[in-house]
């Protein structure tokens, strides 16, 4: 897991209580931080001349169902155009009402990326201007990239018509019903 780089050291000195963990695996520097400190730390990462992370490369999430506590991790990939270095910032998120602060005040590009995480994982972003589904449709139930979402679960907007000679997977219908019952309280 390598030695701590000067950048991570500098960051942990500045925000000693907020950094839960840091490591460098295969040259990828990673810091795991508390959700409360996200906006403050990322603003510091962006504005501090020594760190200078002016470019938000990506936002995504990972569901560690049954593997880790808390269940979700929101993952930010930052890059510095001037200094040419990368950093991964991870925020653990609880399973009940998962939410983190939105980075839209810092980068406009966070808008769609956060919408996608909401769409796929159901993680809310506090302060997001227009948090709604992006790749899926509003009527979609559940969050497909969660590990407990069945992989062959189909939710067609228009019911599938059984045509003569075609195979219809009835298991899929049963699972849809089960999921609708399970999620019934959410709507």
């Amino acid at each position: 897991m390598g030695e701590e780089s000067p950048r991570i050291q500098y960051l942990s000195e500045t925000f000693s209580g907020m950094i839960l963990e840091s490591h460098a695996f295969r040259g990828d520097e990673t810091v795991v931080i508390r959700g409360e400190g996200l906006l403050e730390i990322v603003r510091f990462l962006k504005d501090d001349p020594k760190l200078d992370f002016d470019f938000l490369a990506d936002i995504t999430a990972v569901d560690y169902l049954g593997k880790k506590q808390p269940r979700f991790e929101v993952v930010y990939h930052l890059y510095s155009l001037r200094a040419n270095h990368r950093l991964r910032v991870k925020v653990p998120v609880e399973e009940d009402e998962p939410a983190v602060d939105s980075l839209t005040p810092l980068w406009k590009g966070a808008n769609w990326l956060e919408r996608e995480v909401w769409d796929m994982f159901g993680i809310r972003f506090r302060g997001h201007p227009d948090l709604k589904r992006i790749l899926l449709y509003e009527e979609f139930r559940g969050y497909p990239l969660r590990k407990d979402y069945p992989v062959n679960q189909r939710q067609p907007l228009v019911p599938e018509r059984p045509l003569a000679g075609t195979f219809v997977d009835t298991r899929s219908d049963d699972k849809l019903l089960q999921l609708k019952q399970k999620l019934g309280h959410e709507r």
Binding site: D28, T30, T60, V62, H77, R88
Partner: peptide, 29 residues
Amino acid sequence: EVYFAVEGGNGELGFYIVSQGGGRPYRVR
């Protein structure tokens, strides 16, 4: 977990992959 980017036709094409060990990826973004 690793992130690696190549220059695609339209720009930075990055892959973020999480492995929990074994023969299948845990997460591919």
